[in-house]
Design a protein around this nucleic acid. Structure first.
Length: 547
DNA sequence: TCATACAGCGCC
DNA sequence: AAAGGGCGCTGTATGA
């Protein structure tokens, strides 16, 4: 496939044809306003992979010009993966400028800023270096897939920000008013919160208490004789006192107001769209982060406001129990895969007689993934280890590796960071089994082991989701015609859930493609190993109607 | 006055 | 019911 590397050159853009090994060939110089048309023409002519320093610096302008590209290599993201990947071949380190490069946002003038640090980097050299690192890898298939998926994610992220999630300000406002009362002037509490604050103060005989101050609330609770050490909801729920009910209600509604109230609407919703910035690779495990509007934690409470346009639908799909399924696949644990054959993996475990109840299954699996050893989860673990030795062995190995300061890897080769801190330094220097340390050292060690245990599963889960998203993106494109936002398109992505905005007549076809993309992602990562990734798919007007 | 830390809670 | 992993965001509190 043709590779074309784009770079800025003063006011112009140069497009360099590259071989698969990154060897530069013919160069075309373009004025910036020629670029979209030229890219569109190349896209129409033949498959091409666009190579650029950073998708956030190139793609939004192309989308604004009505140009969608099929595939790219994002050198910034690829450099970040290769820098940590144990699977990368031995090549010289990248220019440290690549690690320092930050993504830019739409209102950021960086693309036309002469001081953009991206311009000091040599994308041709970095591309050759990266291609060499993949070519020299003992697992070039996996690593190449990871880089392609990461880059596809960057395209999908930019497209989702560009299209936005349809959001009804009127619906959201109605919801807020119903729960909080009318919108107050700036600096004042809405009526319902003001009333609850009064009830809390009365119950604690603390007329000046600010219920938004955890420290002040804690002092007031202790003064009233309540045996609490913090003011967390679940702590309060275990206490009997007249203040508990109004205080919990206050906290619930104050949270809604602060995180997703009227000022959230003013700030993040414009022209009927919520447009968060998605940051692919923003989390060490490979999950996406986001910036602006708390996109990855939009509460269920306000999802009724996400409503498809007139004549359109939302297709909402999520994977049930993604991580244990991924664990079954990556460890090739046939027994766990068998349990995963059921739509509900936990029910599958009960059916196989591993545990007595679904609740037990869930607590045990979560303990295996997160490193829970105490209580219920500690009691179930030995049974899981007996029945699912490969799966449990894999996460236990990852935990032990982390505890001795070693690096672990996802299926496709994303490496965990090296631990910081004295305990890890010493082990790394000695290159041998650690001496027993003090209590704090042991705690830090076990804590890092829980991180690496979870890293391999969460990270491989993120890889599955990336493959799903990348394939779905292309399937959706083929379903329609014209501009991206006139066709079925991705509108939101949340770790293991996607929201597609589609013309209503295509909704059922979209649902089918979402399922096929999930099956394809499973085959891509796990080949013929029989592990299912069943989806809950809903065709709805409002996000709140899914699930 | 500004920057940073912490508490708390939303999501997966 | 939480625990155990990963985040972002908001308010208050604190310290320069």
């Amino acid at each position: 496939m043709d590779r074309v590397l784009l770079r800025r050159d003063g006011a112009a853009v140069t497009a360099t044809a590259c071989g698969d090994d990154g060897t530069p060939g013919a160069v075309t110089r373009l004025a910036p306003d020629e670029l979209p048309g030229w890219v569109a023409a190349r896209e129409r002519a033949a498959p091409v992979r666009w190579v650029w320093d950073d998708t956030t610096r190139w793609y939004p302008a192309l989308l604004d010009a009505g140009v969608r590209v099929q595939r790219c290599t994002d050198l910034r993201l690829a450099a970040a993966v290769l820098r940590r990947s144990p699977l990368a071949g031995p090549v010289p380190a990248a220019d440290p400028g690549w690690a320092a490069l930050q993504p830019v946002t739409a209102d950021d003038p960086a693309l036309f800023d002469l001081a953009d640090p991206a311009d000091a980097l040599d994308p041709v050299a970095e591309h050759r270096r990266q291609q060499a690192a993949v070519a020299a890898s003992a697992h070039r298939g996996r690593l190449g897939l990871l880089l392609a998926a990461e880059s596809s994610g960057a395209l999908a992220a930019a497209e989702m920000t560009w299209a936005g999630l349809p959001w009804r300000v009127d619906e959201h406002g109605r919801l807020l008013t119903a729960l909080l009362g009318d919108r107050p002037p700036p600096g004042l509490r809405p009526p319902v919160l003001e009333r609850l604050a009064g009830e809390v103060r009365a119950a604690l005989r603390a007329p000046d208490l600010n219920p938004d101050s955890p420290a002040a609330v804690l002092r007031a609770l202790q003064t009233a004789g309540l045996p609490v050490e913090d003011t967390r909801s679940w702590t309060l729920e275990r206490v009997e006192h007249p203040v508990v009910a109004p205080l919990l209600e206050y906290k619930r509604l104050a949270r809604l107001l602060a995180a997703n109230g009227w000022s959230w609407l003013d700030t993040w919703v414009h022209d009927g769209r919520f447009r968060p910035v998605f940051l692919p690779g923003g989390v060490v495990t490979g999950r996406w982060a986001s910036s602006g509007g708390g996109a990855l934690s939009v509460p269920v409470q306000v999802r009724p406001a996400a409503v498809a346009d007139e004549g359109w639908r939302l297709v909402v799909a999520d994977v049930a129990q993604l991580e244990p399924r991924v664990l079954a696949g990556m460890s090739r644990d046939g027994a766990l895969a068998e349990a995963a054959r059921a739509a509900d993996l936990y029910a599958g475990m009960v059916a196989a007689g591993v545990v007595a109840t679904r609740a037990e299954a869930k607590v045990g699996v979560l303990g295996a993934l997160y490193g829970g050893t105490r209580g219920e989860s500690g009691r179930v673990m030995p049974r899981l280890a007996r029945r699912y030795p490969r799966a449990i062995g894999l996460v236990e190995d990852a935990a032990r590796a982390g505890e001795r300061g070693a690096v672990v890897s996802t299926l496709l080769g994303r490496g965990s960071p090296s631990p910081r801190g004295a305990w890890a330094q010493r082990d790394a220097d000695l290159g041998e089994a650690p001496e027993p340390g003090g209590r704090d050292t042991d705690r830090a060690r076990r804590s890092w082991g829980r991180f690496t245990r979870n890293f391999v599963v969460q990270g491989t889960g993120a890889e599955w989701a990336l493959c799903w998203l990348a394939d779905l993106r292309n399937r959706l494109w083929r379903l329609g015609e014209g501009r991206l936002d006139r066709r079925p398109h991705l509108a939101f992505f949340l770790h293991d859930e996607v929201v597609v905005h589609t013309p209503a007549p295509l909704a059922d076809e979209v649902a089918e493609q979402v399922r096929q993309a999930a099956a394809a992602a499973g085959r891509l990562l796990f080949g013929d190993f029989p592990v299912d990734f069943p989806l809950d798919v809903a065709v709805v007007r409002s996000w709140a109607d899914a699930g």
